[in-house]
């Protein structure tokens, strides 16, 4: 497992949840400190589940104490953003927080479905169905 790659992905997840670069980095480092202190998790999927579970809980703790700021204030638009990309962002804003988080984890971070199923406490089939539904909704929104 590439630690640097996972660091970036956990950081992206934390930033998505906290909407603050400094807090996201603190929570990412705290997550990795906890993982580094344990010597038990060898399997890649188990490690991912551990990292995301810890990050998720830490983000929830932070969110409970700090009022989140709007995402747009912290993320400048990239030069290469296309019309499609902007439309997609608008469609993503229309999703529920949990659906948006799921899309981010699955498609931006590439978290395996079995890890996500464990994280959300649902079966792989339920998760597949939910992801298919979200993608269909996004496609319809972009085409319509």
């Amino acid at each position: 497992m590439d630690i640097e790659e996972q660091y970036d992905k956990i950081y992206r997840y934390c930033f998505f949840r906290l909407r603050d670069r400094s807090m996201a980095e603190d929570v990412t480092q705290e997550t990795f400190l906890r993982w580094l202190a344990s010597d038990t998790y060898r399997d890649r999927d188990q490690t991912l589940r551990y990292l995301y579970t810890v990050a998720r809980h830490l983000c929830s703790d932070e969110n409970a104490s700090v009022k989140p700021e709007p995402l747009s204030e912290n993320v400048p638009a990239r030069d290469g953003d296309t019309v499609l990309c902007m439309a997609l962002k608008t469609e993503l804003e229309g999703l529920s927080d949990e659906d948006r988080e799921l899309v981010m984890l699955r498609f931006a971070n590439g978290v395996p479905v079995n890890v996500l199923a464990g994280l959300y406490g649902v079966s792989r089939f339920t998760l597949y169905r939910r992801l298919r539904g979200i993608l269909k909704r996004l496609r319809n929104g972009l085409e319509g």
Binding site: Y7, D8, Y11, R12, F15, F16, R21, A24, E25, T28, N74, V75, R78, C85, L88, K89, L92, V103, M104, F107, A108, L138
Partner: peptide, 10 residues
Amino acid sequence: LKNAFPVPAP
């Protein structure tokens, strides 16, 4: 979607 969640560099 892969590029739809940009973040500032850590």
